[in-house]
Design a protein around this nucleic acid. Sequence first.
DNA 1: GACCAGGCACATC
DNA 2: GATGTGCATGGT
Length: 222
Amino acid sequence: MTTHDKLMEIYQLLFDKFGPQHWWPGDTTIEIITGAILTQNTSWTNVEKAIKKLKETNTLSTEKLYQLETPQLALLIKSAGYYNIKANRLKNFINWLYENYDGDLSNLESLDTDSFRTELLSIKGTGRETADSILLYAYDRPIFVIDAYTARITVRHELVEPGADYEQLRDFFEYNLPQDVKLYNEFHALLVRLGNEFCKPKPKCSECPLEKLPHKLEIEYH
DNA sequence: GACCAGGCACATC
DNA sequence: GATGTGCATGGT
């Protein structure tokens, strides 16, 4: 059995169990980007409250976010946690957009994926997962997003070595799967769903849809 | 009350 | 390059 087959078996089990996840859970490009920054090390339910607040106050647009003072923005996104840092990070992105791309998110569409990723990573507060989430979920680029759940699941199932870093994990998925935006989108969303419900630090393997696949529990991702 | 959550930058060695 | 720390709310 090839690694590709193992990954597709996992994908099929997850899809059969959970069905389509309809990611990213947001309508507009700026909503996806905002969500990607706000969800850093934070549960989505907390982010939802912050997004709701931004919508209620009509501030979830590039123009309004650009006009808002950082302390005002921090208050609006309070429920997402780390709100001072995240207000700065969101402003960093918006300021970068205005300084380099005329404040227009559609001007980013013409970038090739490699330069796009490099540029995103140059913004303070936009790390690899945030950049890759924006590339895949806001701009349909074939980048496989890695997060703590994805790392934990693949390590526990002994698909990668413990201690594999972000780029090694991303290479692993992209090398062993076809370059398919729809697949990357759904697969990562399903892995997060699995992580949320079963593959916790203290796992619930007896109810897990991957229960019958080989796995170990003592391995943890860092 | 402890533990966890869809990271990231920065300091220090 | 590897490791440790601050950042903070809200659900279980």
